[in-house]
Amino acid sequence: MTQGGFRDALRRKHRFRPVETLPAVALLAVPLLGTDYYALGTQVAISVVFALSLDLLVGYAGIVTLGHALFFGLGAYATGIASVHGWGEPLSGLLLGTAVAAASGAVLGVIVLRTAKFTLLMLTLSAVFLAGEVANKASWLTGGVDGLVGVSTWPLLGRFEFDLFGQVGYAYASAVLVLVWLGMRWLVHAPFGQSVMAIRDNPGRAAAIGVPVLARLVLVYAVSAGLAGLAGGLQAEINQFVGLKDIGFELSATVLVMLALGGAGRLYGAIIGPVAYQVAQDLLSKDNPVLWQLWLGVLIVVVVLFAPGGILGIADRITGKAARRTARRMRPQVRT
């Protein structure tokens, strides 16, 4: 191969594919379904932001966690509590939720990222249980089991009132989602993202090429926590309510399941997973209010058993077969 072959390869690998515009198209399509679907669409958009933040940890940095709802909850409570105490401006509220969660992520990261695997899993699990219990006991601040009531979000940009149909909420959540998605795409394709994936592949090797592994993981953890907090703040503002389930283990597990369903480490899995999960949940629960969780469970078991790479893994296998066939034909037979 001549000089410049690497540049071409990088261009091919990191190029923007037309299919990547599909999520944006889907966002634009929801209003066509009528006002009935704004609430579901908003919830899905928030989940996608949350799942994207988790993908940065699990898929890109190789950090396993069962406690990511901790940061979602912190962001939600920070934004919500500010609103209850008289500051309901949505954009600065989001910023506050993000900052609180990111700062907590940095502090917690310094402590827990010295460990790995099961220890790390247990520590993150303990963290979310602890935080949930604190939120439960500190009812003077959080409302405890009753949840945080009295959240009132001011009109967006001082002009757009959050309406009953959820039209403004949907537009707001969609705009945030697109910005987060663009930011994440930028991050993981930049040299920074490459170095994070290198740590995921092989932390010992990364240290041997001069990467300050712990510091960089803490940074990624803080960014991811901040984005989770952003998703939490977004939900608090749009639903105008924060409850204990927003900082609970169940939410941590659910978002992990959504990500696994879509496929981790590729951004689009974090989009398809929550969409599939919540649309399935919506359809199944309408059909059968009692047994819907069973069918959702069966669906997830089937995907995990037969397609460990998630839904995108299935797509890969279908398109990959064709691609491999051409690659085999094109590749020169090299022996060194």
Partner: peptide, 25 residues
């Protein structure tokens, strides 16, 4: 990856194709 890290560019957000052209070359 080694070249980028040697030059202290591991945190860089510049370059949307994984690595800066000079690093790739």
């Amino acid at each position: 990856l080694a070249v980028a890290e040697r030059d202290g560019n591991g945190l860089s957000l510049r370059g949307r194709r994984g690595f800066a052209p000079a690093v790739a070359d």
